[in-house]
């Protein structure tokens, strides 16, 4: 069986700096991969290359049998790759619903005629989307579903992160990239968010997830397989238990060694 996502020799150079150095990463349908590594090891760069924000220098990216190497973010987004960001990128003064709707815009009718003249068509799409957004947010937190038309800025950090995840999920992606979902949250909040994600994964067994995380607990609980990057190179791939025992990984994190 071929993988959903297959990156081969993916390389990203910024001038003299090689942020990704011939990385091979494959992710299968329904698989959750934890991506770890020290600061500056290239994890977020990998996400940015994968979502088209950076144009990779060389390599190959195949996603669901399509060539996504150096495509635009728009094409990649429409192909079914969604992501969250390390720092919240919600529109805080807009309602939760509007924020989540952004994730669905790719499949909605954005035509000016629908906006200006064919209002009944717009209303039908709107009602359907409100239902979907309500159902989706309710799985994460019923309080969000009940306050769908409140500004996103009036919610706590954990709820904002949930909203961001819902925004990524409403477009029914096949691959979800989570960039440090636990950033800025307490242990308890992180644990709750992981419960949400695990519960959600049960319901969408086909969804592939790549998770960048510093919280090792999170990685341990949620990932089927781990990949460690260091200085843009893949230095480890395997189950979490092996990761903990791996000498090279320990050296990368703790320094020392020889």
């Amino acid at each position: 069986m071929s993988a959903l996502l297959a990156c081969n020799g993916l390389t990203m150079r910024f001038g003299g700096l090689t942020a990704l150095d011939g990385v091979d990463i494959a992710v299968g349908k329904g698989e959750t991969v934890g991506l770890v590594g020290p600061n500056g090891s290239g994890k977020t760069t990998f996400f940015n290359v994968l979502t088209g924000l950076y144009k990779p220098s060389s390599g190959a990216v195949r996603f669901a049998e399509a060539d996504l190497f150096a495509r635009s973010p728009q094409e990649i987004g429409r192909a079914g790759v969604a992501r969250t960001f390390q720092r919240s990128r919600l529109m805080l003064d807009q309602t939760v619903f509007d924020n989540i709707a952004v994730g669905a815009l790719g499949r909605l009718d954005l035509g000016l005629m629908t906006a200006l003249v064919r209002r009944s068509r717009f209303r039908r799409q709107l009602s359907a989307l409100v239902e979907q957004a309500t159902a989706l947010t309710r799985r994460f937190n019923p309080q969000i579903a009940a306050n769908l038309f409140r500004p996103a800025g009036s919610f706590t950090m954990i709820d904002r992160r949930r909203i961001e995840i819902c925004r990524a999920l409403i477009g029914a992606p096949r691959l979800l990239l989570l960039d440090e979902p636990s950033a800025g949250m307490t242990h308890e909040e992180t644990r709750q968010l992981m419960d949400d994600l695990l519960a959600f994964r049960e319901e969408m067994p086909d969804l592939a997830i790549v998770l960048v995380e510093h919280e090792m607990d999170v990685i341990r609980r949620i990932s089927d397989r781990c990949i460690v990057l260091n200085f843009g190179k893949k230095i480890f791939e395997g189950p979490f238990d092996a990761l903990i025992a791996d000498r090279e990984v320990q050296t990368a994190y703790l320094g020392g060694g020889e």
Binding site: G52, G77, V102, L110
Partner: peptide, 20 residues
């Protein structure tokens, strides 16, 4: 939805691009 798209583009071009 065009209005939502415009707001998304104005407030954050990066995330608007990622969402297509």
């Amino acid at each position: 939805f065009a209005g939502v798209a415009l707001d998304a583009v104005r407030s954050d071009e990066v995330s608007a691009s990622v969402f297509g």
